[in-house]
Structures are given as C-alpha cells and as structure tokens.
Design a protein around this nucleic acid. Structure first.
Length: 273
DNA sequence: CGGGCGGCCTGGAGGC
DNA sequence: TGCCTCCAGGCCGCCC
C-alpha cells in the first residue's frame, strides 16, 4: 500500500501527537504478521517515553527512552491510526497501543505483509532490514553523480533499478511510473544505456514527484489513509499510474500498461523513450 | 555476484 | 446468490 510519501505523511501525524507520550499498554491480538513478533521486547516498551518519531525508507521508527526503537512496516495493506479506545475492533486490528491521556493507536493490516520489531536506537542502522538500504531520495546523497554510477552498471530495466531499495529507498510502484513519465524515460529502458542527462532528469523527477505527493498528503488509490484517517490527494495528479487508455496529458497518444518485474507499469508510448 | 521470480496474505472486483 | 480468477501501493529469500 504505502510508499515514501504515505509513510512520511503518517510519520508526521504520529509525531504531532506522540512526542513525549508514555506507553501505558500494548495489546498484541495477533503475534504473527510477516514475521513472528518479538513479544517480550514489545512488552518492554510499556512505561517508556517516546522521544522521536521518524521515517527511514518505508519504515516508521519510534525512538523511546532507554535506547529502545520500535520499527513498523505497513506492507501492502497496513494502517496505523489514532482512534477512540472504545471504537469497535476490526478483525485485522492486530496491535493496540495505549498512551497517557487516553491516546489510542492501532495497527490494522488485513494482508499481514507488515512487520513490527524492536531494537536498540544506537544499533538501528545495523538492523538486518536496515543495513543494506540505499540513500533517501530526498537527501543530498541521492544525486545524479552518485546514481549515474549505479545506472551505468545495471543491465536491468530502469524501473527495476529505481524500485530497488539497495540503490534508492522509498520509490514504489506508483511513483516509479510517475517519475519515469516525468523524465521521459521508458520503464523498460535498459539502465546502462541512460545518458548522464537522462539520469539527472530522473533524479530530479523522483525528488519532485515524491515532494509533491508529500505536500498532497500521499496517494489514495484504494484505501490509504493517514494516522488521522484522512485520505491523500495526490491521486488527482497522477499522470500515468492507473491511467491506461486515457489521453496522455502532454501529447496525443493514449497511456499504455504492461507488466514489468511482476508489477503493473504505466507509460506514454510517445513521450517516453 | 546480480537478476528474476515465487511466495507470503486477505479482500474486492468482475466474469459466468 | 455463488464460485472462480485476477488484481493490489512490498519485499525477503531462493534459485540460476
């Protein structure tokens, strides 16, 4: 479900209300999402105070007192949202968090592709799921100079390269198609054949698409909502994703779709070379 | 080693 | 109404 802009939006909403709250109770209604949950470690968080809420890649990271960090991934269908404690439980409400002053947060994840883990704050970057992550696309270390070294070496389609978290994190299936459209590059284009100028355009497009979507509060294509239950608006600005058969916003041709790397992929056959 | 794809899950949509 | 197939915003792990 969520890509970088959606996780960033959720992270900001969580930060607004969680900073300096104490954890009063955690209820695990299911102990197996994508991985078995570390139940004891999670229960260790009770009584701890939240120091900071941040995002790394598509993970929400909640730093707590005594060097604890809670890692949450929402997979394809996960939601992390505040609600009334007395709100009826959904069968997929797997984890319930109670904070001081009655604040109540739930993790709902029908497909259970999400995950939850606890580690020490100081060792987060050595965590199995974090140690091989590439740069954040909105940071300076993701730039055309560095990325060109990567694109030059890969024989894969460029869409697969920008969706590979080893190379750059946070670019999922929607924004990969959108960024490639904006840069005028065909998703199937062999990475190593891109010119430096094209890689510059692609880097800029990735940054621009993600930044715009964050300011729109993310894309609600099916069912994404933020931590306050509000949908995003960026679906109104999508140029190719899900637009098969519609007229291209730039030229006269119709948007096409195909399957690439097992994922649906959208492009304009005229604008993208 | 890089790259390709199977599999993990549930639910909604659409065809018959 | 039911059943069946396909599809979905992610990503690890196994295979070649």
């Amino acid at each position: 479900m969520p890509e970088l802009p959606e996780i960033e939006t959720i992270t900001r909403k969580l930060r607004d209300r969680l900073d300096l709250r104490s954890v009063e109770n955690i209820t695990l209604r299911r102990k197996d999402l994508r991985y078995p949950m570390p139940v004891k470690l999670i229960q260790n968080l009770v009584g701890k105070k939240i120091l900071h809420v941040r995002r790394r890649s598509k993970y929400v990271v909640i730093d707590l007192s005594e060097n604890f960090s809670l890692i949450v991934h929402l997979g394809m269908s996960g939601r992390l949202f505040f609600t009334d404690k007395i709100a009826p439980l959904n069968k997929h409400d797997h984890v319930l968090f109670d904070f001081d002053s009655g604040l109540h947060l739930r993790l709902r994840d029908p497909r259970r592709f999400g995950m939850l883990d606890v580690c020490t704050t100081s060792e987060l970057n050595q965590h199995k799921l974090f140690k091989d992550l590439g740069p954040e696309p909105l940071e300076k270390d993701f730039n055309a100079e560095a990325f060109f070294k990567i694109t030059k070496k890969s024989l894969s389609p460029i869409k697969s390269v920008i969706m590979n978290a080893k190379h750059v994190v946070g670019v999922g299936n929607i924004y990969a198609s959108e960024a490639l459209f904006m840069a005028g590059i065909r998703p199937t284009r062999r990475s190593s054949t891109l010119s430096k100028n094209q890689v510059m355009a692609l880097c800029a497009s990735i940054k621009q698409v993600l930044t715009q979507s964050i300011s729109d509060g993310g894309t609600t294509f099916r069912d994404y909502v933020d931590a306050n239950g509000s949908p995003g608006l960026h679906q109104l600005s999508l140029k190719v994703y899900g637009q098969e058969g519609k007229n291209c916003s730039v030229c006269t041709s119709r948007i096409k779709s195909m399957v690439l790397g097992q994922r649906s992929t959208y492009y304009c056959p005229l604008c993208q070379k």
